[in-house]
Amino acid sequence: MARLMAGNARYVAAKATHPNGDAARRRLVAGAQHPFATILACADSRVAPELVFDQGLGDLFVVRVAGNVVDDAVLASIEYSVIHLGSNLIMALGHERCGAVKATAEALDGHPSPEDADTKIGALAALIAPAVRAVPSDATDRVDAAVSLNAAQAAAEIFAGSKPLRTRVLAGQLKIVAARYDLDDGRVTPARGGRDIV
Rank of each mutant, 00 (worst) to 15 (best):
I39E: 03
V52W: 01
A6M: 07
A37R: 09
G94T: 08
E106V: 00
P114L: 04
D54P: 04
C98I: 01
C98Q: 02
Q173A: 10
G86D: 12
D54W: 02
A2T: 15
G67V: 06
V147G: 08
R64V: 04
G186W: 08
F53V: 01
V12F: 06
K15M: 09
A76R: 11
A151K: 10
F36Y: 15
V47C: 15
C42V: 00
H95A: 01
A171H: 13
L4M: 03
A178G: 11
I83A: 11
A9V: 03
F36K: 01
Q153P: 05
V62G: 12
A160E: 15
D138A: 14
A129P: 08
R97Y: 09
L85N: 12
A76P: 06
R10A: 10
I78Y: 07
I39K: 01
T119K: 08
A100L: 01
G172L: 04
V188E: 07
P49V: 02
P190R: 02
A145T: 15
V69T: 15
R97K: 14
V101R: 01
K175D: 12
A146F: 08
D22V: 11
L28S: 14
D72M: 05
A139M: 05
R46C: 00
S45M: 11
D184V: 13
A73H: 14
V62R: 11
S137C: 07
G172Y: 12
G67N: 05
F61V: 08
L57R: 03
R192I: 04
G161Q: 08
A146W: 11
I197Y: 00
V198S: 06
A155E: 02
T167E: 15
D44C: 10
A146H: 13
L174E: 02
I83P: 05
V82Y: 04
G58T: 07
V198D: 09
G67C: 06
A37W: 09
I39D: 03
D72V: 06
E50I: 10
D59E: 07
E79L: 03
D109I: 00
D184I: 07
A32F: 11
G86F: 14
R166L: 05
A117K: 09
D185K: 06
I176E: 00
V198T: 08
G31I: 09
L85A: 12
I128Y: 06
D72N: 07
D196V: 13
F61W: 10
S162G: 13
V143W: 09
G86V: 14
V198L: 05
H111S: 09
Y11L: 02
